[in-house]
Design a protein around this nucleic acid. Structure first.
Lengths: 204, 204, 204, 204
DNA sequence: GATGAATGAGAGTTCATTCAT
DNA sequence: GATGAATGAACTCTCATTCAT
């Protein structure tokens, strides 16, 4: 692929991520993507095959980007086990805040009829296995509750941080709106830390 | 409104909920809604004003339906405070399982550009205030952690149950697939109960 | 169907016959058909289902039209058996001359990948059975060659008259161009009569 | 032209004949021709000038090929005059059967708006003049009907053999389908021989 | 000689919506 | 109350062709 083509392809992908993220698969038109990436519509078909394939490529793209940023979690050491929950929570919150493309594309992909999510099947999350090992050590050391598996632990953390951004609009009608201010987020993290460990009896 | 008209309106709303839930706002066509509700397309405009208004009405409809089913939570008494977390979790899980329309429409509404969610602003959730009062009593009794507010408590429960259904497709690529079996759900609930209280030191 | 709709449908079909006949299936655009029939493009899909279905309807339409005009052949009586070949030939020549839509659409349908011709499977040609009976009587009376079946007889007549119009352009490069003048046509008919019967020994 | 270029050109022409024959001018895309001939699209424009010119070249190509195979008809001698009709018929039938590209491209060219057929204007059919001379001798010898010109004679033979292949699809709806079996073809030839001479009184 | 990148026009089809009956 | 007819804009995707490397 020539340099010019790579640039064009890059512009298309960038626009696609932006627009698909904003308006979803059916809410975005190929014409608009072409316009925003200042290229001919045909290039999209030449480089990606079609609208659906472009959506999948967009999804993969942001996923990998976020995966890379998750690698900072691998800097957590045994010494900071008591703070692990807070570290992960803060990291996820900041990632979701910085990458709305990420949770938005994921949400669209989860909803759509088309099995867009299948394109993620070979994407592996390096940090998971690392965190899992650490969590196990934490359990042995009595820092984390033995009866709570890593899967449920991390699932809860992910749920909180994901929903906090993805369902903000509807939840702000049901819950106290203050929850969605900067202070509210900080408070949520602190209290969630209390829930998710380290074990409270340890802290006394 | 005549009886015949009410029936037609009802059929339209039922089809709309089904189709919008399945394919979202942009993925559903007015033609299809008319076809599935066996009525003339024009009736949709006569009864609801337009596609957008029909979407909002669909959203309100399922929301109220679920709200009504949430009223069973008001049967929880002071005596069962130690089991409250489990009761709520199980209820939410069963509601999300029985009403995919609910979490799907909410998800679409959260994502869409159009502020569909605004139609929910006057919908009040009776059970919240009731549960909040109970939770406070539980805190006083040392059953729930004093430092964790009701908002964070209920937010966490909602997040877990919502994400478990809404993000299943993508999460099953990252997390252990067993989490999404019937057994996995039960296990998740049990372990989440451990995290969310009652206070573990109490249990000893 | 309302009167206005019938008129619109009629205009579409008329334009379709004209344009498909002229430029074939792939050479004709739905836009052009809509324009020439002074209607909205969408009407074509509402009334005919799609471009392909409209092509088939056009084919059927001209086929039935020509079938009806073929019924004049059922006026041939036993008395005019010696002139039958000439009568049929002249009729077919005049039909093909008057209805280029007919042989053109048939030719396109024969060539196209899509099995457009299948729409003709239930169209019956009344005149055939009548002519076949007459031909049989002519054979018994020694007017037509006993060894030549009606199928071959009528096939030859049809071939001559069809090709004379359909392949004129290419054949005029190979054969004497005079064949394709009015005089040439008349001459062709007369000589073909000699070949196709009545039996020449009878004429002596 | 270099050897490599000649090969590329040859591949293009071969693919073009195949595809134009199958789907016609408007039904075939330049992209597809390039793909099937494993060359860059640009080569088509470099070697042939454009799609239309390539179509004409394809037409000329198969025409010349068939012309060459027609030269076997020049082996007919005076002695075999009584069998000439059968020989020609059988030859044409076998040619059309072996070269569907031939009658298909001719048919497309006859139908298309564009005057593709003009490219054939300088193509001469050597066998015609030879057969015409033979036919004249046959007429003098009383083998062929004096009143039937060679033009009509050969036109009829060509019509039968051409239509038998080109209009098979539609005709099989009107005529007896058996006509289009191997046996039906043989029978058609035999009976057509009876019609087209030699003069039947001669045969007695 | 050959390839890859790019283009603008136009293909068939469906959209949400309004008007007439 | 309900239906059928009609519209124009928008949709995804492909066309024949040219330019740059």
């Amino acid at each position: 692929m020539q340099k010019r083509a790579l640039e064009t392809r890059g512009r298309i992908l960038a626009s696609a991520v932006k627009l698909f993220s904003k308006s979803g698969y059916h809410g975005t038109s190929v014409d608009l993507i072409a316009e925003k990436s200042a290229c001919n519509k045909q290039r999209i078909y030449a480089y990606f095959g079609g609208k659906a394939a472009l959506f999948e490529e967009s999804l993969r793209h942001v996923f990998e980007e976020v995966n890379r940023s998750d690698e900072v979690l691998m800097n957590i050491t045994k010494d900071s086990l008591p703070d692990m929950t807070g570290i992960i929570l803060r990291h996820y919150f900041s990632v979701h805040k910085a990458h709305p493309d990420f949770w938005r594309l994921i949400s669209w992909a989860n909803l759509e009829d088309e099995p867009f999510h299948k394109c993620l099947k070979d994407i592996k999350e390096k940090s998971y296995s690392y965190l899992k090992k650490l969590y196990g050590e934490g359990q042995s050391a009595g820092i984390f509750e033995r009866k709570v598996s890593f899967e449920v632990y991390i699932f809860t953390i992910m749920s909180i941080s994901f929903i906090y951004y993805s369902n903000r609009r509807t939840l702000s009608h049901s819950l106290d709106e203050k929850l969605f201010t900067a202070k509210g987020a900080e408070n949520l993290i602190v209290e969630a830390e209390l829930l998710l460990g380290p074990c409270r009896q340890q802290m006394q």
